[in-house]
Every structure is written in C-alpha cells, then in structure tokens.
Computed example of a mutant assay.
Amino acid sequence: MKAKFEKGQEVRVTKANGETVTGVIKDWDYNCCTFDAQYDVDYVKDGNVWTMVCVPEECIELI
C-alpha cells in the first residue's frame, strides 16, 4: 500500500466539528479493519507540540 502523504509534509486537517489545524505528517499506517491509510499529524497548540493520531486520509489536504 502506498501512502498519499509523506513524512514531513505540511498539511491542513479538517476536524469533525469543521475546525482546521495546520501541522506536519509524523507517520502513517493502515487500519487493519478497513485497510484505509491513517496518519499521525504533529501540530503546535499553546506553545506545545501535540500529535493527532489515526487521522483519516480524506480529512487531510496538502498545503
């Protein structure tokens, strides 16, 4: 399976509530049940680095 996004790329993630977060792809894996790619995205909030895990590919766009 080939990932659509690569480690280190800057992306924008749209959350379920419509809020967007800008971050960087940290890693990716695939969901064993659905076989869809899921990504871990690092982003900065209040001066700290946070990681969103298991972000579906359809919620991410390349910046």
Rank of each mutant, 00 (worst) to 15 (best):
D40S: 08
Q9H: 03
F35Q: 12
V55E: 00
V11M: 03
I63T: 11
G8V: 04
E6D: 06
Y39G: 01
M52W: 02
V24D: 03
E19G: 06
K7H: 08
D27N: 13
C54M: 13
T34P: 11
D27H: 07
M52H: 02
K15Y: 14
E57W: 11
Y39Q: 05
D29Y: 11
D46W: 09
G47V: 01
V41N: 05
E19R: 09
G47S: 02
M52N: 00
D42P: 03
C32W: 15
K4H: 07
K45P: 01
K4N: 08
I63H: 11
F5D: 03
V55W: 00
K45T: 10
K26G: 07
T51P: 00
D40I: 02
N48I: 12
T20P: 05
G47K: 05
T22W: 09
D29I: 11
V53C: 08
Y43G: 01
K26F: 03
V11H: 05
R12H: 12
V49Y: 08
V13M: 04
K26A: 07
T20F: 07
G23K: 00
D46K: 13
F5P: 00
M1N: 08
V44A: 00
V11L: 07
Q38E: 06
V44W: 09
W28C: 07
K26C: 11
C59A: 15
A37I: 14
Y43Q: 01
K26L: 13
A3Y: 15
T22E: 15
N31D: 11
E10F: 10
A37S: 15
T20G: 06
V53P: 01
L62F: 06
G23T: 03
E19C: 05
F35V: 09
K26M: 08
P56E: 12
M1G: 15
Y30T: 12
D46Q: 05
C32K: 14
T20Q: 06
R12D: 06
K26S: 11
V53A: 07
D40W: 14
K2Q: 13
D27A: 14
V55D: 03
